[in-house]
């Protein structure tokens, strides 16, 4: 039946004059494609299409890319184009109107919010999309299990703004590692331009200054890899880069309990260096989002989207947080 239809179509389309061979073949090919494609197109209800643009956090690059991949498997015509140039680039792009979606690994400052309101007259929609944390890691065989805030500060900073009395330079200075005979603590961290560097400085060093002998790596995974290779190393990195090659230390909270950086503690916020990851959306009040954006957000808020966040090494949101954002 198929061939009959094709010939019919072909003769119909080439009714004037004798068909040239190439034209003939081309048309036949087109007709077959048409026949094959029709049932597929019918099978899908209300196709969503378009290219989504997002500009923002470098930390969330992997996560956004995976969400984009999953979105494309759901709706083959939707593509997510993500420009990872740091959290600070998201507010600029949102104000400029070049994107409607701004993923950020920190909440917006009030100044950034005001800039947007000044331009558009309404506030941005703030969505929490996952939870993340900064971890302090040591080699997997290192007996050290927990550090106080002051100890972290004494190890990584010169300023000791969190109130430690003396700098800690050697493993013998920590009670847990008195027998860890590897001499000086080799420090690893991120480079100046990264948000991780800034956040660690602000939250773990109490705003103080880093030591200048920290090896600065261009990526968190490079930090983890370096610490996993040397027994005398300690470093800080994003939680999503944790591998069994290193051990993530528990941190003492203000109440004096050591909180391990596990999923539960990060999800609840008990772990001192945990944070939300955000997606800022430019949505005028009373309007609804275009279907492609809508599809992305419902994917993120769905169970599948949160599983993808977990697969990328982040921590899913609690059901209560998800429910609070349920209207999206």
């Amino acid at each position: 039946m198929n061939t009959r239809l094709t010939t019919l179509l072909t003769t119909f389309l080439t009714d004037r004059g004798s068909p040239f061979a190439i034209r003939h073949i081309l048309l036949r090919y087109a007709a077959i494609t048409l026949l094959l494609a029709t049932p597929l197109a019918w099978g899908q209800s209300a196709p969503i299409s378009g290219t989504l643009g997002a500009v923002g956090s470098d930390t969330m690059a992997g996560l956004m890319l995976r969400w984009g991949e999953s979105l494309t498997t759901r709706y083959p015509d939707v593509k997510l184009q993500f420009q990872a140039s740091g959290s600070a680039s998201a507010p600029t792009a949102l104000v400029a109107g070049t994107t409607r979606l701004g993923p950020m690994s920190r909440p917006m400052t009030s100044e950034e919010r005001d800039n947007f309101i000044e331009r558009y007259g309404y506030p941005l929609l703030e969505l929490k999309v996952a939870r993340d944390a900064l971890i302090v890691v040591v080699h997997r065989h290192n007996p050290l299990r927990a550090l106080t805030r002051q100890q972290v500060d004494a190890i990584f900073s010169t300023s000791r703004a969190c109130g430690a009395e003396a700098p800690i330079r050697r493993w013998e200075q920590l009670p847990a590692t008195r027998d860890w005979s590897f001499g000086r603590i080799a420090l690893h961290g991120r480079n100046l331009a990264s948000g991780t560097h800034g956040l660690f400085q602000e939250r773990a060093l109490c705003g103080g200054y880093f030591r200048n002998d920290i090896s600065e790596h261009p990526g968190s995974s490079a930090v983890v890899a370096a610490v996993g290779e040397s027994a005398n190393a300690m470093g800080y990195a994003g939680f999503n880069h944790l591998t069994p090659a290193v051990h993530a230390l528990s941190l003492y909270n203000d109440g004096g309990t050591a909180i391990p950086p596990d999923e539960a503690a990060i999800q609840s916020g008990d772990y001192p260096l945990s944070r939300y990851l955000y997606l800022y959306v430019n949505l005028p009040p009373g309007e609804t989002l275009p279907p492609a954006e809508q599809a992305l957000i419902s994917l993120i808020m769905s169970d599948e989207g949160q599983q993808i966040a977990r697969a990328s090494g982040f921590v899913p949101l609690t059901p209560s947080v998800l429910n609070a954002q349920q209207r999206w």
Binding site: G62, H217, P218, G219, S221, A222, V224, A225, G228, N240, H241, T243, A245, S312, G313
Partner: peptide, 11 residues
């Protein structure tokens, strides 16, 4: 992939 990826060992 060697320095920025999610997991250097895997990359």
């Amino acid at each position: 992939t060697a320095f920025h990826g999610e997991d250097v060992q895997a990359a």
